[in-house]
Structure formats: structure tokens, C-alpha cells
Design a protein around this nucleic acid. Structure first.
Lengths: 264, 264
DNA sequence: TCATTTTTTGACAAGTCGTCAATTTCAGTA
DNA sequence: TACTGAAATTGACGACTTGTCAAAAAATGA
């Protein structure tokens, strides 16, 4: 038994196969379409074996979410390390966010399910904590940029305001927009043609409202965003890969700049 | 049979009782705690009778959401009619939003469930359309204020930007904040102490970013907000009523300014 | 009073999730 | 190679869903 016995490797592989199948089911048939029986059937194992990996259905969902969140954190960290003025780094985070959505088109649906208290409560403390960890690390990542901006004099927060408050503004706007986007078919009817652009624009306006220099009226951040996007896209070995996450495409993004995301 | 037979009235009453019980169950035990059998049991009717009112569980949830949304629209309309400069009217909408959250603390949990495609798809087109109606009316209500501001010269949108885009910014930020708030227990850990204030502040900053005059640095909108809040609170006959919606408290808010919300 | 229509009922089918005793497979030893 | 004790796997099972529908009960009208 060098490091892992054959058996252990087998179990490990099975776990990831369970997640793959579960992910596909969730994407294809939504929350109600995810059934332990059906996963077992597809993988040709008995249901009992499934429960040896995950104590309940909800654990699978949280495991899937945690997988995406790990990658998001990596993307955010990479963005935060972007060389440039703080506000450009924030733009990089925005690009990271967009990348994330493209990499995991299903993520927000997962998170939506998870935020239902009756689902959340069934999950294990360990996995819950890991999710919180990712979340607060992401916030910390961005608030770090805010602090840098304050240190360099680009930004002065009003009395009583904290960097985290500003980050909460970006976060809630982004989260809200993505959730609405993922679940609403008829935004166009309402008059919102390009929601993604609208989001980016509104984020910029929010920062302008905080007088974060250089303002979006003084500097063309769309150019920056595009530059970052092309730069990052070039890193991907297979840019035209299937949109639906298949474990591999994840690795391509991640491997470009390994950031130790040790946790839990 | 003057207008409604006794029987018809009886059925009508039962429908609202079903909704009452369902609402309580949802608040108390979450989505999974809502069961048709249990509703029937509580009301001492058979399950079959439940299905004569609502074709499925999801319809009940959507009916509950539509009830809240009707009231929200009324609140928004009232806010939009606030006498003052457009940006003050936007502040009034913000206050309306807060009122709404206080009146229906459970609403965002409902909406979260509804936005799950697998739930949404089971609902009837009629109710779906009604919800869309409320949604677009709310957006229209606010974008109307934006247009007024443009007409009066208080606001000039950048090229290519539409009033709806701005509204989308407010909407997504508010929706995101409320959803995060309703589902996350540990925002304080992350560093966001007063999320409600943070939301209001960020909304103001967003509008500042659009240069919507008077800016929040030139005019104290918090005073305006407080004035509106006290004014509205005074209208309520029973301000210290139970927070949990019980049909009655709704009416008190609504009756202050009847706005015909005909639809479907 | 009785026939017709409407409403109500609850047993039922089909589907969940999670458990656990019994079986099979595996790993180390003689 | 044969055997034995530990570990993994199985699938029938209980308890719970939702939604249906023939039959029973109630309401209506003549």
C-alpha cells in the first residue's frame, strides 16, 4: 500500500462519478430530477453504496457547490493578484465572476437550492463550514483590494462605512443579477436586453458612487476587462470545450496559476 | 343567488384558510415541511378537496407569492406617488421595499423556491403570468421615476444606457441582499454588521454613480427615508401587530391608498 | 319526495429517502 | 492454495410523498 490501495482509489473514483452524474441530472431535470435511486441505477451500484459516500441527497448538492466554490476562490485570488491599480483589480474580479458563470452555468441554481433552510439544515457541519470558508475568503479577497485602494489614496470611504460594506454591495448586486438571470426567462420583456453588460455597468457606477479613482468616466475599464478576458482565455488549453462542467475543463483554468486553497 | 351563493362563499373562505395554513407551515418548517396531507389534516378536509383548489403544491406557493406581490406593487405605486423630487421618490421606493420585507418576512423564501425551475414549471400559466405582471409593473413603476428625473434634468443617462438598466441595478442589488440575508446566518462573521443599512447606503452610492441629483453627499436622504417611514407607520391602524402576515395586517397597509391592481 | 348535479372522500398507484440485516468480496495468513 | 475475519455491497423494507379517481355524500331543483 504505497499511498492509496487499489480499493481506495476505486472508491475515490466512484465518488467523483457520483458527482458527475448528479450534476448532469441537476442540470437536466432540476432539483426534483435528482434522485438517489436514479444515480445508483445509472452507475449500476445499489443505493446503499451511494449512502456510503454521501449521507443524504443534500450532501451531494453541497459537495457540488463546494467544488465550484473552490474554483471560484482560485479565480478570485488570481484576479486579486492582477498587476494594476486597485480598481483595475476589481474589474479583474468582475471578469473572474463572469468566467465562473461560464464555467459553471449551473452553480447559481445549486446555491439557490442550498439557501433553502430545509435543505441547508440537512447538510453536514464540515461541508457547511467549508462553504462558509470559501465565501468569507472571497469577500476577504475583494475587501483586501478595497483596503489597498484606501492605502494608496484612490478611495476614501465615508465615515462609518467599512470595506466589507462596499463588498457587500458588489456581492449582492452580482448575486441578485445572476439569480434573476438564471431563473427568469423574460427579462427582455421587461426591457433589460443585455443583463451581463448591465451588471458590469451598474457595478462600475456603484464604485463611481464611492468615488473610487479613477472613475469609470475617466478611465475605460471595459478595455481592461476585455484585455483580461482575452489573456485568460488564451491560457485555456481548450477554449471551445463543452460548456457543461466535466471536471477537466475546471482543471485547465485552475492549473494556469496554482493557488494553494487549503481549507477545512 | 345575489352575488355569491352561500356555498361559493364557503369555498372562497376555505381557499384563504388553505393559504393561511400553508403559509404558516412554510414559515415554520420550510419548503419540505409543506405537505398537502398535513394541510388537509389541519383543516379537517380530505386531500381531494385540497386539489380542487390548487392543482399542485407549487400552485399554493405561487398563490402565496402573488398575494405578497400584489401588496408590494401597491406599496411601490404609493411610493412612486410621493410628492418630491424624483430621487426622493426613489428613496420612497426603498422605504416601501423595507416595509414589504417587514410585512412579509417569508416572501423571499417563497420567491427562492419559485425560482427553482423544477418548481416553477409545475405552476399554471395564469398564475405565472400574474407574477410576471406584478414584476414588470414594479419595474415600470420605478423606471417611470427614472424617466421623470431625466425629463426634469436631474439625471442624464450615459449613451446606450436605458432607465430599465438602472432599475435592474437597484433590483438585483436589493434582491441579492435580501436573499443572502434571508438565508445566511453568519453575515456578521464576514464583517457586515448592519446589512439593511449597508443596502440602503449602497443603493444611494449606485445612484450617485449615475450622477442622479441631488447626490447623497448634497442631500440627506436618510432624513427623507425616516420621514416617509414614520408617516407610513402612522397610517397603520395596528403598528404593533404580529409580524407574521395574517391577511389582516396586509389590508391595513393596502387600504390607505387603494390602487386598482387589476390583472389576469 | 325524488332525480340530478355537484362536492367530498379516502383508498390507491407510483414515487421519494434513508436503513439495515444478510450476502458477497476482499486481504492477510497458514 | 485454502481459510478466516473484516469490510464493502446489496436490495427489500418502512415511512413518507404527491396526485388520481371511482364511489359515497350532500346540495339543488322540480
Amino acid at each position: 500500500m504505497a499511498v492509496l490501495t487499489r480499493k481506495q482509489r476505486e472508491v475515490r473514483d466512484r465518488e467523483s462519478r457520483i458527482l458527475d452524474v448528479a450534476c448532469e441530472m441537476l442540470i437536466e431535470h432540476g432539483y426534483h430530477g435528482l434522485s438517489m435511486d436514479r444515480i445508483a441505477e445509472v452507475l449500476e451500484y445499489s443505493k446503499g453504496t451511494m449512502y456510503q459516500h454521501f449521507s443524504c441527497k443534500e450532501e451531494i448538492i453541497l459537495a457540488l457547490a463546494n467544488a465550484s466554490l473552490t474554483d471560484r476562490l482560485a479565480l478570485f485570488r488570481r484576479a486579486a493578484a492582477f498587476p494594476g491599480r486597485p480598481r483595475e483589480r476589481i474589474v479583474a474580479v468582475g471578469v473572474a465572476s463572469e468566467f465562473f458563470v461560464r464555467l459553471y452555468p449551473h452553480h447559481f441554481r445549486l446555491e439557490q437550492v442550498l439557501r433553502l433552510s430545509s435543505v441547508w439544515e440537512k447538510t453536514s457541519p464540515e461541508r457547511r463550514q467549508f462553504m462558509h470558508h470559501c465565501e468569507s475568503q472571497c469577500v476577504g479577497c475583494v475587501s483586501g483590494i478595497v483596503r489597498d485602494a484606501m492605502a494608496s489614496g484612490d478611495l476614501t470611504l465615508p465615515d462609518g462605512a467599512t470595506p466589507e460594506q462596499l463588498v457587500f454591495g458588489l456581492w449582492s448586486m452580482s448575486f441578485g443579477a445572476q439569480t434573476i438571470l438564471a431563473s427568469s426567462t423574460s427579462l427582455v420583456d421587461i426591457g433589460i436586453g443585455e443583463p451581463h453588460r448591465a451588471l458590469a455597468l451598474n457595478q462600475a457606477r456603484l464604485l463611481d458612487g464611492y468615488h473610487w479613482r479613477p472613475l469609470s468616466t475617466e478611465f475605460d475599464y471595459e478595455v481592461t476587462a476585455e484585455r483580461i478576458a482575452t489573456e485568460w482565455s488564451a491560457d485555456e488549453t481548450k477554449p471551445a470545450d463543452s460548456q457543461i462542467t466535466s471536471g477537466d475543463s475546471t482543471k485547465t483554468i485552475l492549473s494556469t496559476k496554482p493557488t494553494s486553497a487549503s481549507a477545512t
